[in-house]
């Protein structure tokens, strides 16, 4: 009976053109990314994913001697998709938080960047306290640390959540939003490269350790501790031999490595 069911499942799988992923022995590692986060990851005109985390991820794969593939996945579904086995690692500017640790395990932190508010260029106020932003519309990406931060501290503002970070930026540029909360490097990239000076950075927020955690790490399924260990080893190696600095130098003026 069991054999028969097994056969049916396998036959179904084959009929649907599904390839069983290689078991345990890691030869290929599939990266999941939300490619709407330049300069960390975005899509170029050919549809390929480019950015700091792609270059860095490739460097890690070289160290680990595995082939890697990169998949684009909307942020809202990125943890469910990892858990559902649609890829093996989330390598997408995901901050290491207690909330997420309930679902996934993280590698060591591999970068930490300032977080803050952007506003329209015409807005001259530098006060971004919850009182000052009362009744103002603030946009950010849903299911992020930024969304959680706004929910905790900016209860009296009109918080709008978007599927990607690009979308609140567009709405800030058009004036639909008064403020956007996000990674300041991403906001700067948008303002300089796409926003045509529409907007400006207002200031950096103080990290709330409960919400923000120490920085960004790679996330894995809880069972894949071996893969996490491989990543940790590779991260340390790229730190030691200068590869990390070489790659980040291509994208950033200041070091983002963090401690």
């Amino acid at each position: 009976m069991r054999e028969k069911m097994l056969l049916t499942v396998v036959a179904l799988a084959l009929a649907a053109g599904i390839s069983p992923a290689s078991a345990k022995e890691w030869k290929t590692v599939r990266f999941g990314m939300d490619a709407s986060y330049a300069p960390f990851e975005s899509v170029d005109t050919k549809g390929d994913i480019i950015g700091f985390e792609v270059d860095y991820g490739k460097a890690l794969c070289e160290k680990m001697k595995v082939t890697c593939t990169f998949q684009n996945q909307d942020w809202d579904g990125i943890i469910p998709s990892l858990l559902a086995g649609k890829f093996d690692v989330i390598f997408s500017s995901m901050n290491i938080t207690a909330e997420r640790k309930k679902k996934v395990i993280f590698s060591d932190m591999y970068y930490a960047t300032p977080i803050g508010f952007a506003a329209q260029a015409s807005n001259k106020s530098n006060d971004f306290s919850p009182e000052a932003l009362k009744g103002k519309s603030i946009g950010t990406q849903s299911s992020t640390i930024h969304a959680n931060y706004l929910e905790k501290y900016y209860k009296n503002s009109d918080v709008k959540l978007y599927p990607t970070q690009d979308e609140p930026n567009l709405d800030l540029a058009s004036g639909r939003l008064d403020y956007v909360l996000g990674d300041l490097l991403v906001e700067e990239d948008f303002i300089n490269n796409k926003g045509n000076g529409c907007c400006r950075i207002v200031g950096e927020i103080k990290r709330d350790p409960e919400i923000h955690g120490p920085g960004v790490g790679a996330a894995f399924r809880p069972d894949d501790t071996d893969l996490r260990d491989m990543f940790n080893k590779a991260i340390a190696e790229t730190d030691a031999n200068g590869t990390y600095d070489k790659i980040q130098g291509k994208y950033f003026k200041k070091s983002i490595r963090g401690k």
Partner: peptide
């Protein structure tokens, strides 16, 4: 497009709780 209708709230809850 950010409206918190029934589907919007559903997505919100899913994003919080998976």
């Amino acid at each position: 497009v950010t409206l918190l209708d029934l589907m919007g709230q559903t997505r919100f809850i899913f994003a919080r709780t998976f």
